[in-house]
């Protein structure tokens, strides 16, 4: 993720420089940057890295947090990111059900306590086969059954392959929940308990925040992070590198630490998709639990039997 880190640094530094430039050249009150006009130097200096790689020093008072990328419009969110086809690969050999993915996802999307967009299933394919952990979330199918049945286009498929929900349009009929064979969709049965700051935000399909009462929610593949050139929260939260996210057109997937050629990975490790026979064509691949990093220990079951 070196390239991404650079681009973020660049972005920060440009923002800062632009702010400085505005502060320096304007004698009149600048309508675009009221803050810079009223700043009085504090005398405390901080070192920063400029775009050219030089270390520069500026007064701390001129530092100002760069706002997050502005939210894209509903139209843009429905279109998706051009020239991308997002894909996720799960390496089952690496999962020991730490559920860090789940807690990061729940935290970042402010999901109602008890509900999860990512579920980690203890699976056993047949009586004598070895059990394994299977993290599951929205498959972002290319033939999404949920999108087919939605009567109001509240859940939709984008050009980059992501399936999203417009909670401002959803009528809460829950047909999509019945249609999804992967049981991935959750419903906001009551008013979500959100901090006022979050609850007052305008809803964005790309962040799926804030969740709204009487509407459906599910994994969104974090397209807001993709726009920033960053990985979905579950991917970066997993300490074992189970989740590999990437772009099928670039033919690469990464968990942040390692990057693979997607087609090779799927070929060499015999990747597969869930319920292929249903014809839903998921964008979500699994690598079989071969050559495992961890033994399978189902502590939940032990605790339950105690």
């Amino acid at each position: 993720m070196n390239t991404n880190d650079n681009s973020r640094r660049e972005f920060l530094a440009t923002g800062l420089l632009a702010g400085l430039a505005l502060a320096g050249c304007s004698t009149k009150k600048n309508p675009f940057d009221e803050l810079a006009n009223d700043v009085k130097p504090s005398g405390e200096m901080v070192k920063l890295l400029s775009v050219d790689g030089e270390v520069i020093e500026i007064d701390k008072a001129f530092l100002k947090p760069v706002p997050d990328l502005p939210q894209v419009s509903n139209e843009a969110a429905r279109m998706g990111i051009a020239g991308k086809k997002f894909v996720m690969v799960i390496d089952l050999a690496r999962c020991k059900s730490l559920k860090k993915c789940q807690s990061a996802c729940n935290h970042m999307h402010h999901i109602h306590p008890g509900q999860n967009w990512i579920k980690v299933y203890p699976m056993q394919d047949a009586e004598h086969t070895a059990p394994y952990w299977q993290p599951t979330t929205c498959m972002h199918c290319d033939e999404p059954p949920c999108v087919k049945v939605c009567p109001v286009d509240a859940t939709f498929k984008r050009q980059d392959g992501i399936v999203l929900i417009d909670s401002d349009r959803c009528i809460g009929c829950r047909f999509c929940m019945a249609a999804c064979p992967y049981s991935t969709r959750v419903f906001n049965w009551e008013e979500p308990s959100l901090e006022k700051e979050i609850a007052d935000k305008p809803y964005s399909c790309e962040t799926s925040v804030p969740q709204k009462m009487g509407t459906v929610g599910k994994c969104d593949f974090c397209p807001d992070m993709a726009r920033k050139g960053e990985l979905p929260h579950c991917v970066s939260a997993c300490p074992n590198g189970v989740f590999l996210f990437g772009d099928m057109l670039e033919d690469t997937v990464t968990n942040g630490a390692e990057t693979f050629r997607f087609s090779d990975l799927i070929k060499d490790k015999a990747g597969y998709r869930l319920m292929e026979d249903l014809g839903t064509k998921p964008s979500f691949y699994y690598l079989p639990p071969v050559g495992r990093n961890f033994p399978f220990e189902n502590n939940e079951k032990k605790e339950a039997t105690k």
Binding site: V149, D153, A154, C170, I171, G172, C173, R174, M213
Partner: peptide, 21 residues
Amino acid sequence: DMGRPERFYNLFLHGRLQSPI
């Protein structure tokens, strides 16, 4: 049964013919 009955009009505003609803 609808989660957002007040948005019933969306069926006419944004109705999509491929949905059995």
